[in-house]
Design a protein around this nucleic acid. Structure first.
Lengths: 207, 207
DNA sequence: TGTACATCAGTGAACGCGCGTTCACTGATGTAC
DNA sequence: TGTACATCAGTGAACGCGCGTTCACTGATGTAC
């Protein structure tokens, strides 16, 4: 029966990826040793190199998986460009919050890799760029409708991305234990949405 | 003449610290080798250990310097607790922006060290905590005045810290080249201030 | 003021640890005839 | 269907590179008398 070998290899590869995610979530990407990952996956050290060239190539594979799942999602969900509508803002905030929660280990790894490796710094920017430009479009849309923005659309968009990105990271990755409480999705999304809706449109209509 | 020896040692120690800052700004903290620092300072490798126990102890010394300078600053500058006044918000935004700009290498190093070393993760939180609690106080103040906040003061304060911290990091440390433009202090502070003032107070007075 | 000795900052070659990576080997699966 | 051989996934001990850290040494500064 052919295919057993390939199946065994695929199983090991996936075991290594799952193990890597657990190790990244526990120890972080930068501190994770190859042998930590193979041990967690119950394989010998050498096994790793039948599947990946190194830790970077493993992370690249995890990114590909994550983005593939993310893309399916985007297909299904259309969203309103009208940022004066709180529901449109909420859609973005919620999508990002869930994305980070569901991909915590890979997000952690990518952030850490980006600090040390120019390749992953670029990769991180590439991944965030569409989101940023989407925001710029939305902001230009409401400006055309007569809303006075707090600044240049690109600068305001980068403020939105900074806010949503770092807030989410703080509570979901940092865990928020250092802030002495937990924060549920509902409250997080509500607060960010209200803050952003008023923040970008609070200047009222331009005269 | 006594004191020459001590002076020489002090000069080397400070040369190592200055060199470290240049290396951290160029290569980052995590990638910086001890010998990169000693070479940059024009000293022999072994010299390093007459002054510091290792890279961590060097960073701790740089943090102490930074915080000492920061504390002088806080002494002189009183600030208004009334966050419905844009000037009060602006004061915070501007202070943080300048702090990061003036301490870029140490900020970079601290962020990177915090990713890998629990000690520096705690240190980073400790350094940001007073700022966070100051924000909480200001938010509770305006809420007592009748402003309806977008959420719980602690959560909103963490949003403010996230926004200001990440926005500043993006433009001053990332350099913003990836966003295709430069951003001056004036525009940065104006935009953040307007965004925040409306974001926290845009809900109007509570009924 | 001079001499003899002690101390100390700085040097840089050498050592050794940690960990990524290799590679000869095993046992199982697949192929040829 | 059976036998002989080839291929391949996985193993884990061993190798070796990079870099932090040490340490015997140098020359200058400080101290004692």
């Amino acid at each position: 029966m052919t295919g057993t070998r390939a199946a065994r290899a695929a199983e090991t590869e996936s075991a290594l990826k799952e193990a890597a995610k657990r190790v990244f979530a526990r120890t972080g990407y930068l501190r994770a040793k190859i042998t930590d990952i193979t041990a967690e996956a119950d394989r010998a050290a050498g096994s790793f190199y039948s599947h990946f060239d190194g830790k970077e190539s493993l992370l690249e594979a995890l990114l590909a998986d994550m983005l593939a799942r993310g893309d399916e999602r985007v297909e299904e969900a259309g969203h309103s460009p009208d940022f004066s509508d709180p529901a449109a803002v909420r859609w973005h905030v919620e999508a990002y919050w869930r994305f980070v929660r569901e991909n915590r280990p890979v997000i952690i790894a990518l952030h850490q890799a980006a600090m040390v490796d120019e390749h992953f710094a670029r990769r991180l920017r590439e991944i965030l760029a569409p989101n940023l430009h989407d925001m710029v479009d939305h902001l230009e849309y409401i400006r055309a409708q007569g809303t006075r923005l707090p600044g240049d659309p690109l600068v305001v968009a980068s403020a939105l991305v900074s806010l949503i990105g770092q807030f989410t990271y703080t509570w979901l990755v940092g865990g928020g234990e250092e802030l002495g409480r937990e924060l549920g999705e509902r409250e997080a999304v509500d607060t960010l949405t209200a803050f952003i809706v008023h923040g970008i449109a609070g200047g009222g209509p331009a005269e």
